[in-house]
């Protein structure tokens, strides 16, 4: 007796679905707006998407949007460059030098989990209430994940590549520049992705210190005044910044890490 073989495979593989994400996002916003318009959700508890859009539009038209964005971006970029390059240098040292690793890793592990907000009063004493304390807050938040990502990235570089370079008498500095740094780049870029997000999170904390302008200051003031539309409009700005940074890092990964298997 002949029977067709029963197919048992398939499923359990995730396929990219391009439009589903957009449709789901739009559906959530539509349901949310519908519930608000129908009066099921009190605007005190959750403002409507239209209300948030209105707040964003008001901000853009009054010119405040650019002022807040520019102030925050300046701080984020400065903090990210300072904290990121320090983290890169320390991470390299942790990855390459036995003594630095033995001394530094416990210190970093001890300091990493400290909530930076708890240190704000100290930061005010050390750096004042101008830009330095805000940049320092972001820099400190960026430093630790960057140092740890770089250090583990260096650890990921196959030792045979280093031995190979030594076997060709390549000078130590050139080994760091041509073998270790490019080899650690996947780890470093993962660190950039995480620490850029942390920088965005910390801009709110940084702007707790007497900031007049900035997305974080705007969110804080909106919260203090219980203006929930403005609050969520500010949060939307941060999300947009976060998504932009995510795309930028992905683009950098595609360009710089095309050599990966």
């Amino acid at each position: 007796m002949m029977a067709p073989l029963r197919f048992r495979g398939g499923g359990f593989t995730i396929q990219p679905k391009r439009h589903t994400g957009w449709i789901a996002g739009l559906a959530v916003i539509a349901i949310w707006q519908g519930a608000s318009s129908a009066g099921w959700v009190s605007p005190i508890f959750l403002p409507s998407p239209a209300g948030i859009a209105q707040a964003l539009a008001d901000m853009a038209l009054s010119g405040q949007l650019w002022r807040h964005l520019a102030a925050s971006l300046k701080r984020i970029v400065a903090g990210f460059v300072l904290g990121g390059s320090a983290g890169l240098a320390i991470g390299l040292a942790l990855g390459l030098l036995s003594h630095v690793r033995a001394a530094g890793l416990p210190i970093i592990s001890a300091l990493f989990p400290i909530p930076k907000i708890a240190l704000l009063p100290l930061f005010i004493l050390w750096f004042g209430i101008g830009e330095p304390s805000k940049v320092a807050t972001i820099a400190l938040g960026v430093f630790f994940p960057m140092a740890i990502a770089t250090y583990s990235g260096v650890d990921q570089v196959p030792r045979t590549l280093i031995r190979m370079a030594q076997s060709f008498d390549v000078p130590a500095l050139a080994i760091v520049g041509k073998v270790i740094l490019p080899g650690a780049l996947p780890g470093i870029l993962a660190g950039v992705r995480i620490s850029a997000s942390i920088g965005l999170v910390l801009v709110v904390a940084a702007e707790m210190i007497g900031a007049e302008f900035g997305v974080g200051a705007y969110i804080l003031t909106a919260g203090n005044l219980m203006r929930t539309e403005d609050l969520l409009a500010g949060v939307c700005l941060l999300s947009v910044l976060g998504i932009t940074v995510g795309f930028a890092v992905s683009a950098a990964e595609r360009r710089l890490l095309g050599w990966r298997q």
């Binding site: 060709f168 390549v170 000078p171 041509k178 050599w259």
Partner: peptide, 25 residues
């Protein structure tokens, strides 16, 4: 000069770049 079991090629460099690596310094 070694030839390695696992080739020890720099994955981010082209074939010519890997050969040049031994000469650059």
């Amino acid at each position: 000069t070694y030839v390695f079991q696992d080739f020890a090629l720099l994955p981010w460099r082209s074939v010519a770049g890997n050969v040049a690596f031994a000469l650059e310094h």
